[in-house]
Write a protein that binds this DNA or RNA. Structure first.
Lengths: 134, 134
DNA sequence: CGGTATCCGGCGTGATACTG
DNA sequence: CAGTATCACGCCGGATACCG
């Protein structure tokens, strides 16, 4: 059984942990980009975890059509949501979380709840740090 | 460094401040950058959650001095770790997790364990998606 | 030993125009 | 309505050199 921490396999080398190239970072990087977590949050709240393109666009303040499309494509590529195209007039496109996408929500919520609880403190630390270095 | 008002990041749009989407995104973005998670993981495993600069540098494969310094400064600014300078000859600098930094570890572990369990599936989805669009 | 300072290339993001 | 195509720009991160 390989040793792991934070989902990252590592080996002991000279009595020190040495991490093999890194998977969880890729997921965190995806969620950490500018819009992904907002898209996931909106779908998490929506009935049936399902929204159409325009609902996402109107619900997320400031996002451009291009960035919403790119964000959705990336999530679709990762298998976290699926795209449903309805060839009506005018055309309609809906996005819904996959089973895996929905299963991510509780795990993510655990972490974001820590963030919510500690965010004021983080902001205070940043302000103090910036003031000291002014 | 990002523009800030009251410790909150924002961007100028039409000469008016427009706040970037949400707080969780800021933390996820920090953790999602190239080296932060690796630094946190090493400190998580270290006795006393404490390591000196050179131990981190040698333990994290491929990181440059510059990027390690920047990563540590950002974590220090957020109040997740503290820097201890010992004016010896040669000088020695240690970094240790703060109480808040240590409290983040279990919350983060919950999420990264989900990633660990689902990463193979994500990789498979990506491969399928890329093949379909080749 | 543990940093800064400087330069530079790549990529993520935004603005805008066009399309089925 | 829900995209794509194109161009521009800022910033992250890498390489290198120098410092207390």
């Amino acid at each position: 059984m390989q040793k792991q921490i934070h989902g990252r396999p590592y080996e002991e080398r000279n009595n020190k942990p040495h991490f093999t190239p890194c998977a969880p970072n890729a997921v965190l990087a995806r969620l950490g980009d500018k819009w992904t977590i907002l898209v996931m949050s909106h779908l998490a709240l929506a009935p049936g975890h399902r929204l159409r393109f325009s609902e996402l666009k109107n619900g997320i303040d400031g996002i451009t059509q291009r960035m919403l499309t790119l964000t959705l494509r990336n999530l679709e590529r990762d298998g976290l949501l699926e795209r449903d195209y309805f060839p009506e007039v005018p055309p309609r496109v809906e996005y819904h979380l996959t089973e895996m996408g929905a299963s991510m929500l509780p795990a993510l919520e655990g972490f974001t709840s820590w963030i919510r609880n500690n965010w004021p403190n983080i902001e205070a630390c940043r302000a103090r740090y910036d003031q000291r270095n002014a």
